[in-house]
């Protein structure tokens, strides 16, 4: 039953997290406490902030969705069409460890979508879904014409 399954995931899932390190500044600061939507079944829209199990290390990482399933991205020197994967980038300049290091992230690595900051009190509120204001994100999404199979 989908409802029971969803409830189980909600109860067991991670729904409160603390942010460490700085690759998401200024949107998220180290020490921010966030609520997660712990039961996403698919990748949230571009610009959403998600928590994933980082490929390779398995550590929980928080990044922004730059491109989702069906998008074409420039991975290193090649254009790749994403399947059930997302291309994640940090907000903070060139120093973020993200899809540029570990490539597209599969759906089963997705832990949750960060949607609300409940601490510190000064900055309580919804976490804005940046409209790939990241020019970088837009730059990495290529036009389909460039796709080489």
């Amino acid at each position: 039953m989908p409802f029971a399954e969803g409830w189980r995931r909600l109860r067991r899932g991670t729904w409160r997290v603390a942010v460490a390190e700085e690759s998401m500044t200024p949107a998220l600061q180290p020490g921010d406490w966030l609520f997660l939507d712990p039961a996403p079944r698919r990748w949230p829209r571009r610009g959403s902030v998600v928590v994933v199990r980082q490929p390779g290390t398995g550590q929980l990482a928080i990044k922004r969705v730059a491109a989702g399933p069906g998008d074409v991205v420039l991975a290193g020197t090649e254009y790749v069409k994403l399947g059930d994967e997302a291309w994640l980038l940090g907000d903070g300049g060139g120093h973020s460890v993200d899809s540029r290091h570990y490539g597209p992230v599969p759906l089963d690595a997705l832990v949750g979508r960060a949607w609300f900051r409940y601490w510190p009190p000064r900055r309580i509120g919804l976490i804005p879904r940046r409209r790939a204001s990241s020019a970088r994100a837009r730059a990495s999404i290529a036009s389909k014409g460039k796709l080489r199979k």
Partner: peptide, 22 residues
Amino acid sequence: VTRWLKPTTTVYAHCDVPCGIY
């Protein structure tokens, strides 16, 4: 209250400068 509110899980907004992964 804050003890009750404090998350038990930490997520990392990884960047290579503070982590020193070179």
